[in-house]
Design a protein around this nucleic acid. Structure first.
Length: 328
DNA sequence: GGATCCTTCTTCTTCTTC
């Protein structure tokens, strides 16, 4: 139909609606859309929410760079071929060397946390405010603690399983039922993905980039459908069917892989990454594989974040140092 | 023995039509 014929119809689509008659319907529809919040709570929320917006948008006056100043190779073009490395031995587990003046070597998590975009900070703050309104300060703290506890438990069970070479499906039910229902759900959720994981080479192992000077602990290095990957296990409350639902996780995985590729302790190279998302209700988890191209893209994002972190650090040092001198 | 470290998670939304 010609748009010019439709135009008059559009002008007042609700003018003929008996609004009195449908008022309860409209109310019920609207109430499900905006949840149980009242104008009072919304207003209170806005006071909190709109405060940080100004703060959050301020840095955008200085546009963010898209390419890192210094490019650094993701793969170490040495002469080591990963296929020469035996795959049959037990997985590597390089423990984090605690307390050796390591504060000078920042971690992947710390760098990602401290270099979030203004948008990220804004949405996280807004989410936090909303949760506190709903659960209260104490309730929110408990909610978070519970999420962390579940995540840690899930990781430890997975670690044990991979170390032993067992599969969740073949485990004796009397054993699997020992675990809390959420953990059983998470494991159920990813059991079909675990079938494609083989040749586990590292579990919860520290990776440190020799020249870029950062470190992290990679969850797992193994083959996924035959391709060697750095794997990151995640638990999630919400479904994450697309890679874009995983926020900074791809950058995190690329950072670990880049570190591993430039860490003398590992004699092989990793080109791909994998993010595995598990759900506690046992519904099928999602596996997001990052091919070489995606890894390079995220490696560049990582280099940018690393540069931003270093700049902030230098900025902090130059701004706090004079004060300290004045104190002396 | 206490302190610190790396992780563990959390975000993406709004307008209107057969």
């Amino acid at each position: 139909m010609c748009p010019c014929l439709r135009a008059p119809k559009r002008r007042s689509p609700y003018s003929s609606v008996d609004s009195e008659r449908y008022s309860s319907l409209v109310k019920s529809v609207m109430s499900t859309r905006v949840s149980s919040q009242t104008p009072e709570t919304l207003q209170a929320e806005d006071e909190h929410v709109f405060g940080p917006v100004v703060k959050a948008q301020a840095p955008s006056s200085r546009p963010e760079r898209r390419a890192p100043r210094t490019l650094h190779p993701f793969l170490n073009c040495g002469d080591v071929l990963e296929t020469e490395e035996p795959e049959s031995g037990p997985p590597t587990r390089i423990l984090l060397n605690r307390g050796q003046g390591r504060s000078s070597v920042p971690s992947v998590t710390r760098i990602l946390q401290q270099t979030q975009s203004p948008e990220q900070i804004f949405y996280l703050e807004r989410w936090k405010r909303r949760m506190i309104l709903e659960l209260g300060e104490e309730g929110f703290r408990e909610y978070n603690q519970n999420l962390f506890r579940q995540g840690k438990y899930f990781h430890s069970v997975l670690e044990e399983l991979l170390e032993s070479g067992e599969t969740w499906k073949n485990k004796d039910p009397s054993e699997t039922h020992k675990y809390p229902p959420e953990v059983q759900g998470y494991m159920e959720s990813i059991s079909h993905i675990l079938e494609d994981v083989s040749a586990v080479r590292a579990i919860e192992s520290t990776v440190k980039h020799d020249s870029l000077n950062y470190l992290g602990v990679a969850d797992c290095v193994a083959r996924f459908r035959g391709v060697l990957c750095v794997i990151d296990w995640k638990t999630s409350e919400k479904p994450k069917p697309f890679l874009s639902n995983t926020y900074d996780n791809p950058v995190q995985v690329a950072a670990y892989a880049g570190a591993l590729n430039n860490d003398g302790n590992y004699k092989y190279q990793v080109e791909n990454g994998l993010i595995v998302v598990a759900y506690k209700d046992g519904s099928p988890g999602h596996a997001h594989q990052l091919n070489a191209e995606l890894m390079l893209e995220n490696w560049n994002s990582w280099l940018l974040r690393l540069e931003k972190f270093t700049e902030q650090r230098l900025g902090d040092a130059s701004s706090t140092f004079p004060e300290k001198r004045q104190e002396v």
